[in-house]
Design a protein around this nucleic acid. Structure first.
Lengths: 194, 194, 194, 194
DNA sequence: CTTTAAGCGAGACGGTACGTCGAGTCTTTTG
DNA sequence: CAAAAGACTCGACGTACCGTCTCGCTTAAAG
C-alpha cells in the first residue's frame, strides 16, 4: 500500500510473478494447502529467494493480497441508502462466494483467526472498508434518511456478518435476493419511525 | 450426536481420554497447531490407536467437540424478545471471545471454511442452534411482538454474524453493551410499525 | 563391534543396505562429497529413517566402517621381524592407496582431524591395530631380534606415518619396494648392534 | 610462493585483508567450517569480489597460506645431525599441535586428501620442505655421519609421518621427548655400523 | 473359568514440506 | 568501463508430522 522507495535494483525482483502464483494457488487450493515449495516451483523461482524476502507464508500471502485488486472496494453511490446498502452487501457476498474469490477470501480471513500476520491484514482490510462504507451512511444522514447518531460500525457488522454466517458458516449459496433481504431488515432497523 | 449402539467392549476404549486431551490442546494452541502426535503423547495412547478409529484429525476434533458441552446452547426464556435476543447474542459472544472457548470455537469454525469434515460439524451445529433459537421467535410471534412472516434465519444470521465480524474479523473485544446494541438494532428492524 | 542384543524387530532394519551404500559412495566420491540424501536415495530408504538411527553423517559412516571388513587387519607371522614388518607396511600401504580402499580410508581418516565422531573411530582403529601389531614385536623380542625395551608404538608410528606421508601428503604412488625400504630403515634402527 | 607481478592497481586490492581473515577463521574453526560468506562478511568485502579473484574456497585458502609465514621452515644448523633432526621434528610437531597452527595445518593438510587444489599446495609445501631439509642430510654426509646413499626422502617421511600419526591420527599430545625419541630411532637406522 | 476376538502398544517405515545454510552465478548500478 | 553491490539458482541440511504397516500382548465378554 505504501510504496517504499528503494534504491534501484534493490528488492525482490520476482515479486510480481510470485504474487500471481500465490493468488492462483490460493484460488485452486485455499490457504491451508498452499505450500511455499509449490509457489516456488510454479513460479520458477528458488525457495531461497522467497524466504529472503518474506519471513513466512503468511507474510507472502498478505503481500500478494494487498498487491492484488481482489480486496478492492467500490463505494456505491446510487442515490438511496437502500441502493447503496444492497450494493455493499452484494459486493461482500460476491467476494465470499464467487468462484474466483471465495476460496481466497474465506480461507485467508478464516486463517486470520489464528495467525497474527494475517490478522493484521484482515483487520486493516475491514477497517479500511469500514472507513469507506461510512460515506454511504453519511450521505444517508445528510439526506435525513437515518438518525445522525446511527452506529455505522454496528450496521456494517450486521450486514457483513450476515453474509459470512450464511455463506461460510452455514455454507449456503445465496443470490441477489439475499442482498435485498439483508438490506430491508437493516433499513427497517435504521430508519426512524414517524 | 447419534449414539452408535455397539456391542459392548467394542469401539475406542480411550475415547474419553482422547477427547479431553484434544479439547485441552485446542484451547492451548488452536486447531492449526493441533498435532495428532501430540494428542497421542499427551494421552499416553499410541498414534496407531487414534488412526484406527478416526480417519483424520478433523474427524477426531469433530467428535471431541460433539462429545463436549462446549457447543451446547441454553434456549433463553426471559419473557420478552429483547431479553431472549440479548441472551442469545451474549451466548455467542461468550463462545467466540471467552478465554476458554474462543481458541477452540473460532479456530474450528474458521478451519471449517476449507475442511469438509469440519464443515459438516459446523453446518450441523449452526442448523441445530437455529432450530432451537427459532422457538424464541415463535414465542415472540405468539405474543404478537413481531410479524408472523419474520425470516428467523435471517435475523439470527445478522445477530450471529455481527458477533463473528466484530470479534473474529475485526478482532475487537466487546462486552455486554454489544449484546444490547445488536438486540436494539435488530429489534427495531423486526418490530412492526404502528 | 559389540553386538547389542536387542529385542527382536527392534533397531534399524535397513542398516545393512545403508552400510553397503555408504561404502559405495565413499569409494566413489570420498567422505566430503557424501550426502545423506544421496545415501537415502540410492538405498531406496527415506532420509527420515536414517536420521532416526544416526545423529549425523559421521556416526553413520563410522558405523558403516566398523561393520565392514575394510579396516580388518591380518597379523602376519612370517617367522622373521623383517617379513612381518614388511607385511604390516604393505597392508597399510594397500589400504591407503588401493583403488577400492584409498578413497575411503584417506578421506575418513583425514576428516577425523576435525570431526569428533570420526576421531573416536580413528583413534580406536589405530589403537586396536597397535595392540595387535604389538604381537609381532613381542615375538621379535622373544627371538632376541630386538631389544626388550623397544618402543613399539614409536616404531609403528614411524612405519605407518611414512606410508601416510608418502601416499597422502606427497601423493606419490609407491609399490612393494617401499615396504622393503621402510622395513630396512626401521630394522636398522631397531636391531641392536653387535 | 610465486609472486605474480601485476600491473599496479590491478588485481585484488583487498587481498591482504582477506588473507588475514581467512587465517583467523581457519584458526578458529578449521578448514571445513570455513565459509566464503563468512570471510566476505568479516572482511567487509562483497562475496562477488572474492569469486572474481579466486575460483574457489580452496584456492583462496591456498593463497592465504602461501602468503602467510605459517608454513615457513627454518633449516636448522646445530652442527650435528642429531641436533638438526630433533629441530626438524620439533618444528613439524609444533606446527601440527601448537594451539595457533594446529587447527590450520591439520585441517588443511587433511582436506588436501580429497581436494585437488589443496593437494597442489600440500605437495608443493612438502616438496619445498624436503628440498631444504635435504641440506641437513648433505651436511651429515659431508661429515661422514651417515652413508652417502642415504634415502633422504624416506628418512624425512618417517620422521614427519611419525608426528602426523601420533598427533593427528592417534590424537595424542606429545612434547619434546618425542622429538628426541624419533631422532634416536631414526639416527640408529641411518648411522652406519662399525 | 477359560477362551477368543476386539483393542491396544511398540516399533519401523515412506513421504511431504518445512525453514536454513552456503556455494557459486548472473545482472544491475556506481565511481 | 571495471569493480562492487545485489539478486538469484541450486543442492543439501536436519526436523516435524503425516499416515501406514506388522506383530505380539492384554483384557473382558460369552460360552
Amino acid at each position: 500500500m505504501t510504496s517504499h522507495t528503494r534504491r534501484p535494483g534493490t528488492g525482490p525482483r520476482q515479486a510480481e510473478r510470485l504474487y500471481r502464483v500465490v493468488l492462483e494457488l490460493l484460488r485452486e487450493h485455499g490457504f491451508d494447502e498452499l505450500a511455499i515449495e509449490t509457489v516456488a516451483q510454479r513460479a520458477g523461482v528458488n525457495k531461497t529467494t522467497i524466504y529472503r524476502w518474506w519471513p513466512s507464508k503468511d507474510a507472502l500471502v498478505a503481500d500478494a493480497l494487498i498487491h492484488s485488486e481482489l480486496l478492492d472496494l467500490d463505494v456505491p453511490d446510487t442515490g438511496s441508502l437502500r441502493g447503496d446498502l444492497t450494493a455493499l452487501v452484494r459486493q461482500v457476498r460476491l467476494l465470499l462466494s464467487g468462484a474466483d474469490t471465495a476460496p481466497i477470501a474465506t480461507s485467508v480471513f478464516a486463517a486470520a483467526a489464528s495467525r497474527p500476520e494475517l490478522a493484521g491484514l484482515t483487520r486493516d482490510f475491514f477497517a479500511d472498508r469500514l472507513s469507506r462504507e461510512r460515506v454511504v451512511f453519511e450521505r444517508a444522514i445528510a439526506r435525513g434518511d437515518i438518525h445522525p447518531d446511527t452506529d455505522v460500525t454496528l450496521a456494517v457488522d450486521l450486514a457483513l456478518g450476515a453474509v459470512w454466517t450464511r455463506v461460510v458458516l452455514r455454507q449456503q449459496d445465496v443470490g441477489e435476493a439475499f442482498d435485498a433481504e439483508v438490506t430491508d431488515l437493516l433499513l427497517a432497523g435504521l430508519t426512524p419511525r414517524t
